[in-house]
Design a protein around this nucleic acid. Structure first.
Length: 270
DNA sequence: CACACAACCTGCGAGC
DNA sequence: TGCTCGCAGGTTGTGT
């Protein structure tokens, strides 16, 4: 469940455990995820982890020599093990650290990836294509309105695009549009400034709220069976088609657009 | 530019 | 019970 709040949570938990630690062994169980796992990843042995950051849904681990870029795709998950438990189906790689902890990557659908870079330049190239972080100040109504007013694409599609704002997935796109009373397939240039203001506010609100609930999920082996974030229970529209709207009790609808499911209440959202 | 659609991969639930 | 179908949190590339 790698949404922005989830990735942020994973990053925070990782940071506690891996910062300043040395990687003593790398196990690769799979040749290819979304991209081939670089063979030279083995070279990071004996390197020390100096930094860990999140950009959009990417996790960047910096060592004293290299940059490791991780993306969880749709089904990726990172587990922290206290001992070397036998690998299970869909476990793809491990980093073993000098504090005996093991970072293990599991990904059923293999849409995630692991890449290695030796220069900041290449990382910057990827990061520079990303729009502002939704919880930062530079993601604000003025900024978003400047974009939405010039474009004629569905607002749902626009806020899902990493170029315009980072890290919003289908769940949060749907939920924040519901809260803002905006129907997901509205053309972005038909939204007025007040609506954009509401949308920006609700995106921030919902991400913060989710971060709060996901933040309570402890991501270690004990919790491997319990990887539903608590926020799941807070959803009001996502995957609720056929059910009654939380606000007006009308039946929630769903349409497919550009390969995504949009959920909405026709009475509450305009 | 806006959009539709496919591809990458595996598992699950619905319906027959 | 077992089959097929459609669907799933993401990203990237194609063609119209």
């Amino acid at each position: 469940m790698p949404e922005l709040p989830e990735v942020e949570t994973i990053k925070k938990e990782l940071k506690e455990i891996i910062l300043g630690k040395k990687i003593i062994k790398v196990n690769i169980y799979t040749k290819k995820l979304k991209y081939k796992i670089p063979k030279k990843i083995k070279f990071i042995c004996k390197e020390t982890i100096t930094k860990i950051k999140r950009y959009s849904k990417y996790i960047l681990i910096k060592t004293n020599k290299n940059y490791i870029l991780i993306h969880l795709g749709i089904s990726g998950n990172i587990l922290i093990l206290n001992e070397n438990i036998k690998k299970k189906k869909h476990d793809h790689w491990d980093f073993i650290l000098d504090n005996n902890k093991i970072i293990r990557y599991n990904d059923i659908r293999k849409f995630g990836f692991l890449l290695l870079f030796n220069s900041k330049k290449k990382i910057n190239k990827i990061i520079s294509n990303l729009g502002p972080e939704p919880l930062k100040k530079n993601f604000n109504p003025k900024y978003l309105f400047k974009i939405t007013s010039k474009k004629k694409i569905c607002i749902h599609n626009l806020i899902m695009n990493n170029k315009f704002v980072s890290g919003i997935g289908n769940i949060y796109a749907n939920e924040s549009l519901f809260l803002s009373k905006i129907i997901p397939y509205r053309k972005s240039n038909t939204l007025n400034f007040n609506e954009i203001k509401k949308l920006v506010l609700n995106i921030k609100l919902i991400l913060k709220k989710s971060l709060f609930y996901k933040g309570t999920t402890i991501r270690n082996f004990k919790n491997i069976n319990n990887n539903y974030g608590f926020f799941q229970n807070k959803l009001k529209i996502y995957q609720k088609s056929g059910k009654k709207c939380y606000t007006c009790k009308k039946i929630i609808k769903k349409v497919k657009k550009y390969g995504r499911s949009l959920y909405f209440c026709k009475k509450c959202q305009k």
